[in-house]
Amino acid sequence: MHFQPTEEQRDLRAGVRELLAGRYGREALRASVDTGVAVDRGLWRELGEAGFFALRLPESAGGVGLGLPEAALVFEEAGRALLPGPLVATHLAAGVVPGAAAGTAVVTAFDLGGGLGGGLVAHLGEADAVLGASGVPAGSPVRSVDPLTPLHRVASPPGAADVSEYRSAGALLTAALQVGSALRTVELAVRYAGEREQFGQPIGAFQAVKHLCAQMLVRAEVARTAVYAAAVTGDPGEVAAAKLLADRAAVQGARDCLQVHGGMGFTWEADVHLHLKRAWVRAEQWRTAGEAEELLAAELLDSAV
C-alpha cells in the first residue's frame, strides 16, 4: 500500500462494507444486543465464504492470497460495523484449525491481558477451538462490560495455549477494528451535531462541538495511518505504536461522541455506548497499552546503545 490504497484494495473495502451493511446493519446489531447472541453461525459461514478468514492464506491452500494491508482494510470495516465475535482469533487460526478458514468453526484465543487478567477468554462458550490449545477448557462466566463480548474465566489456562507467535498480527488486526470504530463514532457525532438544535441552530455550529469532532477525526486518521504503515512494514514497534494510537482513538472518540450526544448518548437505544464498551475490551486484547509501551521503550533503548 503506497500511501493510498490501490484500486483493488478500495474495491475490497467497498465489497466488505456492502456485505456487512446488508447482513449486519443496525437492526441486526440491536437484535444481537437484545438476544445476547454474539456469534451468528450463519453470518460466520458467510464471512468464511467471502474469504474474510482465509484472506491471508495462500491460494495453494485454498485462501485468497492477500496480505496484512488488505486484512487491515477488511478488519477496519468490521470494526466500523461493530461486528462481534472472535474475528481476529478465527482469522489467525485459518490454516491451523480445521474449519476456521471456511467459517464453519469459531476459534477464540487467550488474548486478554492487563487489567482483565490472562485467565479471561472471550467467546469461550461459543467457540469450537482455542488458538494454540488442545480442546476447549471449561470456564466460569464473568460479567462483561460489552454485551456482545461474553467472558469466561479459566482457572488454569493450558500451557499449550501459547499465542506469542500470533501476538503482533493479532494486535495489528485489533487496532484495525479500533480504527473502524473510531471512524464510525466520528460519523455518528457529526451527523447528530448537524441534526440536534439548540438556541435555533444545530449544535454543530458551536465552537466547542466543532473542536470535539475535529479532535476525534484527527485521532482516528492518525491511528489509521499508523495501522496502514504497520501493516506494510510488519515491524513489531510500529505495530505496538499503531495499537496504542488506535486504542486511544477508539476509546476517547467514543467518549467524545457521547459528549456530543449529551444525555441521549447514554441511553440504551443509542449505539454510542456499544462502541465505547467494545473499545474498552479491545484495548486489553493481544497487546495492552502497558505492553506496547514496554516494547517501544525497549526498542528506543536498543537504538540508543
Rank of each mutant, 00 (worst) to 15 (best):
A72G: 11
R143Q: 12
A226S: 07
D162C: 06
R287T: 07
E269Q: 13
R153V: 11
A292V: 09
S60P: 02
A105W: 11
H123S: 10
K277Y: 15
A292L: 04
V251Q: 11
P150E: 13
V272H: 12
D111L: 12
S140V: 12
E284V: 10
L47Y: 09
R248E: 10
V97A: 14
F110N: 09
R219I: 00
D146C: 09
A171V: 07
V130N: 08
D111G: 11
G119T: 10
V218C: 02
T90V: 02
V190W: 14
G85T: 05
A93H: 01
A127E: 09
P147C: 06
E284I: 03
G180I: 03
G200R: 05
V232Q: 08
G234R: 02
P157R: 04
V222G: 01
A193I: 06
G118V: 10
A38M: 00
E7G: 07
T174N: 15
E293Q: 15
R196C: 12
V222E: 02
K277G: 09
R219K: 11
G85F: 03
Q178G: 03
A292Q: 02
A81Y: 04
A129C: 05
D235K: 03
V305C: 08
L217Q: 00
R41F: 03
L12I: 03
G65F: 12
D256P: 02
A254G: 02
H152R: 13
G65L: 03
G113H: 15
W44D: 05
E238R: 14
T90F: 06
A230F: 04
V64M: 14
S303I: 09
R282S: 13
G118A: 13
G48L: 06
V260C: 03
A155I: 01
S144E: 08
G265A: 14
E299C: 11
R219Y: 00
F75V: 00
A93P: 03
P5Y: 04
S181T: 14
L20H: 01
Q252H: 04
S168D: 15
E293F: 14
G114I: 15
F206K: 08
P58S: 13
H275P: 00
A270L: 09
T233P: 05
G119I: 03
A220I: 00
V227Q: 02
G263V: 08
E294M: 13
V179L: 02
L244W: 05
V272M: 11
G99V: 13
L83W: 02
Y166V: 06
L173I: 09
P147Y: 07
L82I: 13
A155R: 14
R80N: 01
T90A: 05
A254I: 02
S32A: 15
A155M: 03
G253H: 06
R278K: 13
M1R: 15
A161H: 12
P84I: 10
V16M: 11
R248Y: 09
G170C: 04
L148N: 08
Q285S: 15
A102I: 10
A93Q: 01
E76N: 00
V74G: 14
A127Y: 12
G115K: 12
V239T: 04
V96A: 09
L217M: 10
F52Y: 08
A133Q: 11
A205W: 07
D34C: 00
